[in-house]
Computed example of a mutant assay.
Amino acid sequence: MFDAIGLDADDTLWENETFFRSTEAAFADMLADHAERDAVTERLVETEKRNLSRYGFGIKGFMLSMVQTAVELTEGRVDGHTIGRILEMGRDMLAHPVHLLEGVEDALAALENRRLFLITKGDLMDQERKIAASGLAERFAAIEILADKTPGQYARVLKRHGVAPERFLMAGNSMKSDVLPPVELGGIGVFIPHDMTWSVEHAEPERHPRLHELARITELPGLIEMLECRT
């Protein structure tokens, strides 16, 4: 049997990317006099990617990238009102209610006797806020908030909790962050796609016997039982 089941948070347990997309659209409208909306969005995404090594993942880095993009696209002529509006949009995102995805409660109820790990990444304060607001914290034996999800980060988490990689299963919506790193370590990766996964989290999967894909999270308990029966 698996010693631990890992679950991602954003866009696996609750909505996240939809709020980024709606803010991104509002930002593009604000700068429509300076560039086509699609061009504004593309420039923002490029800026976010460049800034990941400085600001990490999360809303605060997104806010700073919006400010930088506005400054660059207006050649430094952006006014204080626009900067203030960008900051206001970011604050709205940081206060947004947590909406659980369909089927999450049922899936967690079916896994209640399992040793569950919540493994997420991003800004510490924002992730802690969302976890508390979700009402799900007590369902998990361990909660890990990482700066990034790399094989090395997963290895340290598993070592800290005394879990062998080959007895670990991780499920989430990001092929790059949730699936491929555990598979690389020798564990099982389960891909549960979300309609709005951020482009940075995309990765081309390779056919692998320890990589699985599900249409919805409610299928996860059945997959776990099937995999354990095989062994």
Rank of each mutant, 00 (worst) to 15 (best):
M1D: 04
D3P: 00
D3E: 13
I5K: 02
I5L: 11
A9R: 02
D10Q: 02
D11F: 04
T12C: 14
F19T: 11
F19W: 14
R21V: 13
S22V: 15
E24R: 15
E24M: 12
A28G: 03
A35L: 12
E36P: 06
R37H: 02
R43G: 03
L52M: 14
R54K: 13
F57N: 03
K60L: 14
F62M: 12
M63D: 13
L64M: 14
S65A: 15
M66N: 03
T69L: 10
L73G: 04
D79N: 14
I83R: 00
M89I: 10
D92K: 15
M93Y: 04
M93G: 05
A95W: 09
H96G: 00
V98Y: 10
V98H: 09
L100A: 09
L101A: 00
E102M: 00
G103F: 08
A109D: 15
A110I: 01
A110M: 07
A110L: 09
E112H: 13
R115V: 02
F117A: 06
K121D: 06
K130A: 10
S134G: 02
R139A: 05
A141P: 02
A141S: 15
G152T: 04
Y154G: 00
L158A: 04
R160E: 01
H161F: 08
G172R: 13
S174L: 01
M175G: 05
M175W: 02
V179Q: 01
V179A: 02
L180C: 02
E184N: 07
F191D: 01
F191S: 07
M196D: 14
T197P: 04
W198R: 13
S199K: 14
H202F: 15
A203R: 15
H208I: 01
H208Q: 04
L211E: 11
L214P: 05
L214N: 02
E225Y: 06
